[in-house]
Nucleic acid binder design. Sequence first.
DNA 1: AACGCAATCAGGAATGGTTCCGAATTAATG
DNA 2: CATTAATTCGGAACCATTCCTGATTGCGTT
Lengths: 156, 156
Amino acid sequence: MTMEKETIIQRLKEKGLSITSPRLAIIDVLVEQGHLHPGASFIYHEARKKHKSLSLSTTYATINEFNRHGIVKALEFDGKENRCEVNLDDHINLICNRCGKIIDYHPLLSVDRTDVAKATGFVITGNRTEYYGYCQDCSRDRDSASPSGKQHNHHS
Amino acid sequence: MTMEKETIIQRLKEKGLSITSPRLAIIDVLVEQGHLHPGASFIYHEARKKHKSLSLSTTYATINEFNRHGIVKALEFDGKENRCEVNLDDHINLICNRCGKIIDYHPLLSVDRTDVAKATGFVITGNRTEYYGYCQDCSRDRDSASPSGKQHNHHS
DNA sequence: AACGCAATCAGGAATGGTTCCGAATTAATG
DNA sequence: CATTAATTCGGAACCATTCCTGATTGCGTT
């Protein structure tokens, strides 16, 4: 589940980070759930509605700070915009090759991390699991007019 | 297991792609396994030893072509260089936060893809699974002076 | 051997998301 | 409130990758 606004503010205080108006505006965007996997530009434009002077660099700085403190989790892509994972529960992201939609899927079983450590000596601190393919909407009419197009991610 | 040189050449022929000297040089780099997860610049510099006039744009074009035809699989990163997955068996990449090493791990059990399709209607065509953490070398002396590597990935 | 088309080259410019910089502003503290 | 450090801002810089252009090479086929 997504964190509460109060929880996030609490966490910032604990870490000695200031509660500023730009940050509050960004937090609102994150918790309001207009987008489960917002990118920097989405956050920037939305947060600007509340804090009109917000700059893009501050948006990036804030996202990085939040990522560093486990408030969001950065999903990195090349070519495409990076995304923020707002729901931090363990899950798999299903990413549509066609429309770019990202769907959260909570599987029943998962690879046991202690097995990995036992087998390889590798200590896991984080993970990233993504399945690519076609979402229900896109697989319904896979080869209609506009083929694999621009991979643009308009919605979560 | 990594594909054989012959297998790759065979596949190129099937797809109607020409067998050229630059491509053979690049294939050699891939199958010679000096690097299990080489980036474009590594491939470029290595392949140049065999085909001296190779250009960087051709290197990128070739990698993209190979990726498109399933001969390698592109691992996309942001900020860092992208990497080529040469071993296409289903596995998890263990990526060290410190030295950047990438270790292939073949788990015993995996999430069943048909379950995913059944539960979400999402048709899976590919996947990406990465665990981040500390490799054996780096977790041994996690907080010693020098982070043995510049976070750059010199070896697989 | 010769043709046609794909691939290569150069290499510089463009791209675009992200980061970096210096200066101005603001939050937290006592 | 005065101080100090953190934060913010705008714009410039970054950088791996892509995209040119047009000339040349050389693979695969006839």
